[in-house]
Amino acid sequence: MRLLSTSLKPTSGTAQVKGYDILNEPGKVKKEIGFLSSDTGLYPRLTAFEIVTYFARLSGMQEESIKRRVDEIFEILDMNEFGNQKIDKLSTGMKQKVSIARTMVHDPDVLILDEPTLGLDVITSRSIIDFIKSSKEKGKCVMFSTHVMHEAEKLCDDIAIIHKGRILDVRTLADYRKKTNLNDLDDIFVKIVGE
């Protein structure tokens, strides 16, 4: 995921995101993606609004469209209540919402989300899952990593099972069920990893 986000360079090989090479056109790749992981923190001394606006400006958006987009995204994620509060005053769930807003503000076509619901309460977690679902329905490509199997069941078209840094299998949930004769993704995961 870090390689695709261009924050790390591959030792060999390359990849393309929306037709842009991660080695030769990292700037263009970064404009097309929204990347979120547990390592992408937020500036504690800035407000939610300032952070989201900052990243919108960095992606080259015009001031008028920034305002519109920020209002829209704050509304969708229900962030207006704490928009002008500094990050270090916010709860984990609020911070994660700001991170999602930061990832989505430039309306990227590709979303790379590394465990976006980690450590969140059920309600915040559900609102984030719903938001990802709606992004998917809008035709965005979402790459989503999780340890919570029912999230993968709920969201993913294609599921890659990764164990010890290697992809063991990639297929749809239906195909996994057919292959393993198991219904639950937890059981499917354990079976494939055990093989």
């Binding site: 986000s5 261009t6 924050s7 700037g27 970064k30 404009k31 993606i33 990347f35 992981s37 547990s38 390592d39 992408t40 923190g41 937020l42 500036y43 990243f55 960095l58 992606s59 080259g60 930061r102």
Partner: peptide, 10 residues
């Protein structure tokens, strides 16, 4: 952890 956030920005 904010350095990585800015590194994935354009």
């Amino acid at each position: 952890g904010t350095l990585e956030t800015i590194l994935v920005s354009p």
